[in-house]
Design a protein around this nucleic acid. Sequence first.
DNA 1: GTTATTGCAAACATTTTGCACCAGC
DNA 2: GCTGGTGCAAAATGTTTGCAATAAC
Lengths: 144, 144
Amino acid sequence: MNTLEHRLADFCNHCRTQGFPLTPQRLAIFRAVLASVEHPTAEDIYQSIKPQMPSLSLGTVYRTLEWLAQERFISRVHAPDSPIRFDANRTPHHHLVCVSCHRVADIEDPALDELPIAPERLQGFTVTGHHVQIFGVCPACQKR
Amino acid sequence: MNTLEHRLADFCNHCRTQGFPLTPQRLAIFRAVLASVEHPTAEDIYQSIKPQMPSLSLGTVYRTLEWLAQERFISRVHAPDSPIRFDANRTPHHHLVCVSCHRVADIEDPALDELPIAPERLQGFTVTGHHVQIFGVCPACQKR
DNA sequence: GTTATTGCAAACATTTTGCACCAGC
DNA sequence: GCTGGTGCAAAATGTTTGCAATAAC
C-alpha cells in the first residue's frame, strides 16, 4: 500500500530516525507535492500553502524541495519551456509532455522501464537510469 | 550525404529562398553548432565566436539559436542542472547524460526510435515524438 | 541550550526584450 | 530605401545564498 497517510508516516519516521527536525513547513510542502496530481513547480507549491501559512517564504520552498529530492521522497521533472517541476510518484514511470500547455502527465508502462539498449552503443557510460519523455498535445489543448 | 558543407549550403539556400537575410552572425553561429561535438550552450557558442567577431553580442546568439531551432536546423537539448544546449545532429537519436559533469553525448539506436507504447496508456495525448535520456557516469568521470 | 531551519533580501545565472543604429537585399 | 537584424543595456525569470532571528529537539 502506498496511501498518502502511509507516505506521510514514512516521512515523519525518516525525519525522527535521521535527526532531521520535522517542521510545519516541511510537512506542508511534502503534503502539497503528495496532494498534487499535476507536477507542481516551486511557485505552485508556494502559492498553494501561502494562504494557510502566510509566513512561508519561497526560499524555504526551494530549499525544502531540494532536500526532499535528496532524501528520495520526491523527484525533479525537467521539461522544456518550464521551470523545474516536482513529482511524489515513486513507482517507476515516465512522462507525457504537452507541447502546447507544458502540462506533464505520468505514464506507467513496463515496456518503457527496460529498454533494449545495445551495450556497445553506450560509449563507456556506466548507466544509472533512464527516462522517457513523450511529446504530444493533451486532450484539453486538442479542443482549442 | 550530410557533410558540413552540405548542411551549410542547405542553410544558405534556405535563407535565400525564404527571404531571411544571410548575416555573418547567423553563418558563424550555425557553423559553430555544426562544428561542436559536445552540445554547446549559448554561452559556449558566444565564447567560441567572440575572438573572430568581437562585436558579436550574446543577445544575438540567443536570438539566432532560437531562430535556427524554429527553422529546424538545430534542436534544443534540455538536461538537468544545465542551461539549454544545442544540437545540430538531425538524424534520429537520443542522449547519454553524465550525472557527474553534465556532459551530453548522442546515442543512436533504432531500438530507441520506436517504443512499444500501449495506446490506451496515452491518456488521449496525440503523440508528436519522444526522447530518451539515459543517465550515467561518463568514462572521464569514472576515472576520478 | 544546542543545532538546524526559517524568513528575508540580496545576489546570481540564464534568457528575453526595447530601442536606436546598421546591414543585407 | 526598405525591412529586418544587431548591439547594447535593462529587465524579467527562476533559483541560490548569507545572515540574523527563531523553532525543533
